[in-house]
């Protein structure tokens, strides 16, 4: 029992070190990687543009539900006018960065792991090495950099659409005056809140995309399985780890910044 626990701990430490080295190498290899711009644009498209519809839909429904639940709860305390600050603070500080990251992991992250896993299985990554091309610079760096661009933008879209959702619930479907809703939203959000949201988005982006790249890149040696099963296992593992990492990192950042 103790032996198994010790082995698991040692394995976790070793994997954490390997992951940290992989991430650092991914960022560092961007320097000097040729034609990085073209691959970066493609990664931004795959992580961002393709995921925009789901971000907008989830953001809208999150705002709608927040508006609905918030209005009825606040009305019971005679504070329905505080719906704007409730929706705005919940979205900007917490829900937008966290839920946008989880949506991006589910759609773009899983696709990324599968693509890299298949490239590993079909020896495409080995082929890059034999051609003298650094696979970290070619495959990992553009995806990591794209995450730093995409996650903050998607978080902003999520928050904006969520605010609209809250307004639809509170002022269109329910009787809160629109002017009161928007003016209270404006008054309750300051640059510090937006900054906190962006810091979270950047950390979640780097963390989750690095986890997805690491799992896909090492699909051949990490999952205890081979071929298509290894890709499938790596994808599941990456999505689960990324989701947990987002929530854990959210708590850490919030406790540091609040």
């Amino acid at each position: 029992m103790l032996s198994a626990l010790g082995q698991a701990t040692l394995r976790t430490i070793a994997e954490s070190g390997d992951f940290a080295r992989f991430t650092a190498r991914g960022f560092a290899s961007a320097i000097g990687s040729r034609r990085l711009g073209r691959r970066l644009v493609r990664s931004v498209y795959e992580q961002g543009v393709r995921c925009l519809p789901v971000i907008l839909i989830v953001g809208l429904f999150t705002g709608l539900v927040l508006g609905l639940q918030g209005y009825h709860t606040l009305r019971d305390f005679g504070a329905a006018s505080m719906l704007g600050p409730l929706v705005a603070n919940s979205l900007v500080r917490e829900l937008a960065p966290v839920l946008a990251a989880l949506m991006l992991v589910g759609q773009a992250g899983s696709a990324l792991v599968a693509e890299l896993g298949i490239q590993r299985n079909s020896e495409q990554i080995d082929a890059l090495e034999t051609m003298g091309i650094d696979p970290h610079g070619f495959l990992v760096a553009p995806r990591l950099l794209a995450a730093l661009i995409v996650y903050p933008i998607m978080t902003a879209f999520f928050a904006l659409v969520g605010l609209v959702g809250g307004w639809l619930s509170g002022s269109v479907l329910l009787p809160l005056p629109s002017s009161l809703y928007w003016s209270s939203v404006d008054a309750s959000i300051d640059l510090g809140d937006v900054g906190q949201s962006m810091v979270k988005a950047l950390v979640f982006g780097a963390l989750t995309v690095a986890l997805c790249c690491h799992n896909g890149f090492n699909a051949h040696r990490r999952s205890g399985s081979t071929g298509a099963r290894a890709v499938s296992a790596s994808t599941t593992r990456a999505v689960v780890f990324s989701s947990v990492a987002v929530l854990a990192a959210d708590y850490l950042i919030t406790s540091l910044l609040v």
Binding site: R35, I118, Q119, A127, L128, M131
Partner: peptide
């Protein structure tokens, strides 16, 4: 150079881009 048994062509690149890849990148 190495010719892989399974070819190991990059499936997201066209035939032209695959052949140009080692020249452009290395």
């Amino acid at each position: 150079s190495y010719l892989f048994q399974g070819n190991a062509l990059l499936d997201s690149l066209t035939a032209w881009e695959n052949v140009a890849l080692p020249l452009e990148q290395a």
